[in-house]
């Protein structure tokens, strides 16, 4: 197979999902080095091969979890998922990440027994909708506007207690609420 850039024999083959489409690139050794492909961190086909306008499009089209609205860039930033469904939304590349973190990529331990017996006396008096037999609750609708000043107070507290991770989350939450608040 020939290199996509210079016609030499390709030795590096890359596959990546951009804008929901699988893109494959074949490169020779020299071109792969020139494009920085062999560097372990930070390589993205988008950065190496897309035009600036395509790149901007790729960013606005970034993968978002349908269930909770969590974005791929938030995941990259905080290293945590937004909700259980995020593991489906962001499954691309997850195996590689897990391989570095764990002994394997497949769970071999305990499994919940879905037919678990629910004894009536163990249930709360008011049978809530999240007991096992009921279907899983639908993803929650977007919340009504939250009091931004309250969030600001929480942010101040987080900063004073040096909980910077919490502070970052609060700041993001406040920023996400700002445009809505001003449009009203």
């Amino acid at each position: 197979m020939k290199c996509d850039v210079c016609e030499k024999e390709a030795t590096v083959f890359l596959t990546q999902i951009i804008n929901g489409q699988m893109t494959t690139v074949n490169l020779c050794e020299d071109c792969s080095k020139a494009k920085g492909v062999t560097e372990e961190t930070g390589f993205g086909l988008a950065e190496a091969f897309l035009s600036p306008s395509q790149r901007a499009e790729a960013e606005t089209m970034e993968v978002v979890c349908d269930a909770c609205g969590f974005t791929a860039s938030q995941l990259k930033k905080i290293g945590r998922m937004g909700c259980p469904e995020c593991y489906t939304a962001f499954r691309e590349g997850l195996d590689g990440l897990l391989r570095n973190m764990h002994k394997g990529t497949r769970h071999v331990g305990k499994r919940p027994n879905r037919k678990g017996i629910v004894t009536p006396q163990m249930l709360p008096r008011q049978r809530s909708s999240i007991v096992a037999e009921s279907p899983p609750p639908a993803p929650l609708p977007p919340s009504p506007p939250v009091d931004v000043s309250k969030l600001r107070a929480e942010l101040d507290l987080a900063v004073s207690e040096e909980r910077y991770e919490d502070a970052a989350k609060l700041k993001a939450e406040i920023e996400s609420l700002q445009p809505k608040a001003s449009s009203k």
């Binding site: 945590r80 998922m81 259980p84 897990l98 990529t105 769970h107 919940p112 027994n113 007991v131 096992a132």
Partner: peptide, 23 residues
Amino acid sequence: EGLLPYAFDTKLGYLTACPTNLG
């Protein structure tokens, strides 16, 4: 687990906020 619907995936195990706790 008999009373609440856990987030569980057959391949990934118990789903957690941080992937370092997965499984």
